[in-house]
Design a protein around this nucleic acid. Structure first.
Length: 452
RNA sequence: GGCGACGUGGCCGAGUGGCUGAGGCAACGGACUGCAAAUCCGUGUACGCGGGUUCGAUUCCCGCCGUCGCCUCCA
């Protein structure tokens, strides 16, 4: 069974399942006010791998991931551009899924939207107010974090320590807040802003409330795993948890946080690599699988440098894997090599050790190629099957080259004939012609294979 | 200032108190090939700096330097 680092206990522990055979996961999704950037790509890709792996082991995965479609940034952009805010959220969400499809991230099983849950949020905030764990100020309703016993669990810091630090930062709503860490549950709206009715006046929910309500509604108390970026650990996840604790409800049993994409200097990066500005640009300029492979080759809790040469290296590595897929397309199906799969499972079960799993994948490809070179077809078939299993579990789709049109196949046949007749000038010309048309040409003693 | 994390070969990036430091890319040599390609085999004076613990440290401890994240809005 999968062992995962748990941010709350700061240790690698087994992911305990509330219900045998089923995994319930909540993943904090995007605020739809702009294009999906490279950092979003990492977030969704890492959890896509988690999900595929869990499903590959035979578990039934329910992955809930929200879309925040009401928020200050959305309103700001709408005002700036003089457009209705819904136009922005709808467009950005469409672009988001386009990008997700592009990088091969599967849709979550549930995609709740904040605006669909406003009534439930109002009800929850009402409970917190009634319990005297939230209070009103001139601009909204705030959560009283001091009323939550273990507030700071995910921050790894007590409220006093947070206060002791602090630096010279300005605290939002500081004037009327009881504690600087108190956070807004309900924001009273200004004229012209999107708003919903509430007992405290027209307004909109604060960011930290939607995930609590949605997670508890769709997954129920004590769900298995809550995921997101390391920057969400505090305050977002801390504050989600605080609300659940205040309500007396069991929340996530396990917390998983991934690290960032950083630039060459190691700085958190979300905007650009080379000529690429966002995720859609990335997949337009490069093989989208390359990004997945770059991520797989490092651990989800480590920062990853993403740059041109990094992506290029992955593209080259992918070419080798594709060549393997093409070479083995005709290999008879067999039971996957059990030893390889055992090794794969133990790597992945150890806090998703995808670097080790990926190393195993490349090793297995090499062994299979060697077996094929040595005519050991039985051995090769089992290894080939294992490669396909591992790729499936990691979400790596290999290309065996696809269909070759008749006229192109005819040229390949002509190439073979020229070589057989030792007319190498003609053979080279044909090969150059095919390559110019975008085909990867491999001429072997067994004939020519084509891929693109 | 508080808390968390990191510094590994030409590049990216795993890992470990000693036994040959994963894997990818690049480079070099060899096999195969008409030549390429693909494939296989082989090749590397690494662990920020200074102390300490130890028979032995890249791995543990202390200090320093550097980098990053969080401490209101972020994947």
């Amino acid at each position: 069974m999968l062992h995962l680092y748990d941010s709350a206990t700061r240790s690698v522990r087994e992911l305990a399942l509330r219900e045998p055979g089923k995994v319930s996961i909540y993943l904090c999704g995007p605020t739809v006010y702009g294009p999906a950037h490279i950092g979003h790509g990492r977030a969704t890709l890492e959890y896509d791998v988690l999900r595929r792996y869990l499903e590959w082991t035979g578990l039934d995965v329910r992955l809930v991931s929200n879309v925040t479609d009401i928020d200050d940034q959305i309103i700001n952009r709408a005002n700036r551009e003089g457009r209705p805010w819904q136009e922005i959220t709808e467009k950005c969400e469409r672009m988001w899924w386009k990008a997700m499809d592009g990088v091969g991230v599967q849709r979550p099983t549930d995609i709740p939207h904040a605006t669909e849950y406003v009534d439930e949020m109002v009800a929850m905030i009402g409970e917190l107010v009634a319990a005297d764990q939230a209070y009103a100020t001139d601009d909204g309703i705030y959560m009283d974090v001091e009323s939550v016993d273990d507030y700071g669990l995910l921050a790894m810091q007590t409220l006093d320590d947070m206060r002791a630090g602090g630096g010279e930062r300005e605290v939002v709503g500081a004037v009327q807040k009881r504690h600087p860490a108190d956070f807004v549950l309900w924001k009273l709206s200004k004229p012209g802003e999107p708003s919903w009715p509430s007992p405290w006046g027209e307004g909109r929910p604060g960011w930290h409330s939607e995930c609590v309500v949605m997670a508890l509604d769709l997954l129920g108390e004590g769900f298995d795993l809550h995921c997101g970026g390391q920057d969400l650990r505090f305050p977002h996840h801390e504050n989600e948890r605080a609300q659940a604790v205040a309500l007396g409800k069991g929340f996530a049993n396990h917390w998983m946080h991934h690290n960032f994409i950083v630039d060459a200097e190691g700085e958190k990066m979300s905007k650009s690599i080379g000529n690429v500005e966002n995720l859609l640009d990335l997949i337009e300029h490069y093989d989208p699988r390359a990004y997945r492979l770059v991520l797989l080759q490092s651990h989800y809790r480590s920062p990853v440098k993403l740059n041109q040469s990094n992506i290029d290296a992955a593209v080259k590595a992918l070419a080798g894997l594709d060549a393997f897929a093409a070479r083995t397309a005709g290999v008879t199906e067999a039971e996957p090599d059990a030893g390889v799969l055992d090794e794969f499972r133990s790597a992945m079960d150890d806090d998703l050790d995808t670097p080790k799993a990926t190393a195993l994948l490349f090793d297995t490809v090499r062994r299979a190629n060697a077996a094929l070179d040595a005519d050991g077809s039985d051995v090769a078939a089992a290894l080939v099957a294992a490669v396909h299993e591992m790729c499936g579990a990691l979400g790596l789709v290999l290309s065996a080259g696809g269909d070759v049109p008749d006229d192109v196949a005819a040229k390949a046949a002509a190439l073979d004939a020229a070589r057989a007749g030792k007319d190498f000038a003609a053979a080279d010309a044909l090969r150059a012609e095919l390559q110019a048309a975008g085909w990867t040409v491999e001429t072997t003693k067994d004939g020519t294979t084509l891929r693109r």
